Structures are given as structure tokens and as C-alpha cells.
Amino acid sequence: MSGLIFLILGFVFLIVGFLGEGGHAAALISWTSFVIVFGGTFGSLGTSFTLKQIKNIGRVLRVAFTRKSTDLVELIVYFNHVLDKAKKEGFLSLESEIEENENMDPFMKKGLQLVVDGVHPDYIRNMLEIESEMSFKRHKTYASMFESAGGTAPTMGIVGTVLGLVHVLGGLAKADMNALGASISAAFLATLYGLGSANLIFLPIATRLKNLAKDEQLQKEIIIEALSLVQEKVSSTNLTDTLKSFLDRKDQAKLDSRYLENLNKEGADVA
């Protein structure tokens, strides 16, 4: 949601700056420029990508602006809990983890179910790695759609401005000089729409999708490695130290703090 807020703020600052220079909000509205820029951009996307991919734009936008980042430290702490339960009660006990947690990530749920079913670790890793890679490729495809739109929109803006100037210059001999300035101004709105939409909408969304894809891939790599360690029934320290290597230094320090906190808690419970 924060991405949507900053996108709106970008447009607000742009308009406020324009009004601060003495402009009028109505001067920024031109339906013909809108049709040329966004219609041309949409046509270009339809030519470059399949109809199936175009239909998914709404879903992709919803993901881009509503998806929350996963707390990787909490994810590793959770797998410590899963490991402890598997060692004490066996893999079949993990069935309850799947049934009770309705909001569990589908990728992790699938992996845990395979562990419960007793599937060989190498098969689980191979299957989940393929699924992770294909998901990452899909995300890259949708990011490239918005990159393409970000490259096309400014060009469509120039096309719209040229078309407007052709119309203005074509009637220059009979033009009302009072209306000439307004006509030229309207022609340049197409360039504004193209540049504004590319740099405030299309390219930032493309970058956001790429970052979300990287975060999701890292999360899935941790899940895959964690499931393998759970199946091996390694020590809690081994699991934590192995998965900690996926984190940045700030999260590593946070994980160490949580691990010590859990150890102190277990010691207090025993006492």
C-alpha cells in the first residue's frame, strides 16, 4: 500500500508545483492527449505481449501495491519450531501445522505436505526449485511489460505533440492569435502525459515488481533449504546458522537475538 501512496504523492507534488508557478489545474487536462498517449501505449503492449498476459495486468497491479514483505527472521524462527516438533513427534505431526494455519504461504504448505507424505528430499528440492524459478520468470515477464510501457509512453507523447503541432501550423494562416497559444500548449500536454506516466507510473512499477520477485525468490530459497534441514533432523543451531547466511547483517543480528531469547525461555521453562 505504501507504493500506491508514494505514487499519488508524486502526482500531487507535480500538480502543486505547477499551481505554484501560476498555472491552472484545468490546463493539464486534455482528453485527446490522453487517448493518443495511453491508447498508443496500450496498442504497443498488445502487439508485444499475448492477450493472456495483458489480461493479468490488473492482478499484477494488485500484487504490486498490496503484497507485504515476509519477515525472514520470523520465517526461520518458525522453521525452528517445525524442526523441534518433527524431532519430538515425527513428520506426521506437521499435518496439524498445515491444517491449523489457513494463511500459510502456498509454497511452504506444499513443501510441508511433501515432507509429511515422506517424499524423498532430493525430489522435494527439485520440484520446489523448478516452481520457484518459473514463478520468478513470470514476475520478470510482467515487469518487462511495464518497462516496455515506460519506454513507449514518452514516444507516444512526442507523437501526440507532433500531431497537435501539425494541426496548429496547418491552420496558422487563419488562426486566431489569442487561441494559438492555447492550442500549442494543448499539443505539448501529450509530451507531459508521456513523460509523467513513464517516470511516475510505468517504470517505478516495473522496478517494484522486480524487487518483489527477488524478495519472493529469496523467501522460497530459505523455505527449500529449511525443509531439507527439517527432513535431516539437524540440530536447531545447525538450522539457524545455515539459514542465517541468507540474511543481511541487520536481520542476522535480529535472528541471533531471537535465538538467544528462545534459549533463555526454554531454560527458564526447564527450571
Results as ranks from 00 to 15, higher is better:
His120Tyr: 06
Asp176Glu: 12
Gly43Glu: 11
Asp269Ile: 12
Gln252Glu: 15
Thr47Asp: 11
Val166His: 00
Glu131Gln: 11
Ser135Trp: 03
Thr66Trp: 13
Leu14Tyr: 15
Gln219Trp: 01
Lys109His: 00
Leu192Glu: 11
Glu216Leu: 08
Ile8Lys: 09
Phe146Val: 09
Leu114Lys: 07
Leu247Ser: 08
Leu247Pro: 09
Gly3Thr: 13
Gly20Ser: 13
Asp71Lys: 05
Leu83Ser: 01
Arg258Gly: 01
Met134Ile: 14
Asp251Ser: 12
Phe91Ile: 10
Pro121Tyr: 07
Ser148Leu: 06
Gly157Ser: 11
Glu102Phe: 15
Ile222Trp: 05
Leu209Arg: 00
Leu128Thr: 04
Ala198Ile: 12
Leu45Val: 06
Thr70Trp: 00
Gly157Gln: 07
Val159Cys: 03
Ser135Asp: 15
Lys254Leu: 14
Met127Gln: 02
Arg249Thr: 15
Met156Thr: 06
Glu221Ile: 02
Ala186Ser: 10
Asp117Ile: 08
Phe34Asn: 06
Glu266Cys: 11
Asn103Ser: 09
Phe91Pro: 03
Thr47Leu: 14
Gly118Ile: 10
Glu221Asn: 06
Ala253Glu: 15
Ser228Leu: 08
Gly196Glu: 14
Glu221Tyr: 03
Ser132Gln: 13
Gly3Cys: 05
Phe246Glu: 14
Lys265Gln: 12
Ser33His: 06
Arg62Gln: 05
Val63Leu: 09
Thr161Ser: 08
Glu100Tyr: 01
Gly58Cys: 08
Leu28Pro: 11
Glu216Cys: 02
Gly111Val: 03
Gly160Phe: 03
Asn178Lys: 11
Gln217Lys: 09
His139Gln: 10
Ile36Cys: 03
Leu4Phe: 15
Tyr193Pro: 10
Leu180Met: 10
Ala179Thr: 13
Gly181Trp: 07
Leu61Phe: 14
Ile130Gln: 02
Glu266Gln: 13
Thr161Glu: 03
Asp105Asn: 13
Asp71Phe: 14
Val77Thr: 02
Asn126Thr: 13
Ile222Tyr: 02
Leu83Ala: 01
Gly151Arg: 08
Glu99Gln: 09
Val37Tyr: 05
Asp248Thr: 11
Asp117Lys: 11
Thr41Cys: 10
Ile205Phe: 03
Ser44Ile: 09
Glu216His: 02
Asp251Met: 12
Thr207Asp: 12
Gly196Asp: 10
Ala153Asn: 05
Arg62Lys: 13
Gly171Gln: 12
Met134Trp: 04
Ser197Ile: 15
Gly196Cys: 15
Gly171Cys: 09
Pro121Thr: 03
Ser33Arg: 02
His139Asn: 14
Phe202Val: 05
Met127Ala: 06
Asn211Met: 07
Val35Trp: 02
Lys87Cys: 00
Met145Asn: 04
Lys140Glu: 13
Val60Trp: 07
Val162Phe: 00
Gly267Ser: 10
Ile184Ser: 04
Leu192Ile: 15
Leu61Arg: 00
Ser183Pro: 04
Asp241Thr: 10
Tyr123Lys: 04
Thr70Ala: 11
Ala179Asn: 06
